[in-house]
Amino acid sequence: MLPRISKAAVKAVLYFVLLYLVPSILISQLAEFAPDLFANYSQLLRLFVAVVIFFVVASELASGTIFQHAFNIGKAIILIIFYVLALDGGVISLNLNFESVPINIWADLRVYLMMLITIDLLGLAKGLLQAINFLSEKTELQVPTPQPAK
């Protein structure tokens, strides 16, 4: 159990640095140019990192069991929902005020969203196949080997 916990902790720290610290620094630098534009995204980033780290740690702790694959499948589904919600279905619109002039920014990121969803669908398919493979291997181990007839 201890190696699993330490492995999960190392992964959590790595994901935290890669997915939170580095993007946070980038976002804070970009926010200097347009504070209104990036203000909401730091909150979304925190939520995204929390979801990913939860599933990575849970999956690691449950490794070697069917729950590992269940967590991977859950992660893929939750992230698809998260991406759709975070990107407003792929069409984002922001209203800003630049020196008291109202500015509306609109971007159609559906191609980008499709790419994200494709990646997560691949992860979902992989998780499902891993779960099926895990169960079939387990079943094979439980079935007694037929003995030759005497």
């Binding site: 002039v101 109202p102 500015i103 509306n104 920014i105 609109w106 971007a107 159609d108 990121l109 980008y112």
Partner: peptide, 11 residues
């Protein structure tokens, strides 16, 4: 060639 973008304002 992938991301339609629009910026608009009212004066």
């Amino acid at each position: 060639h992938a991301v339609p973008f629009k910026i608009s304002s009212n004066l």
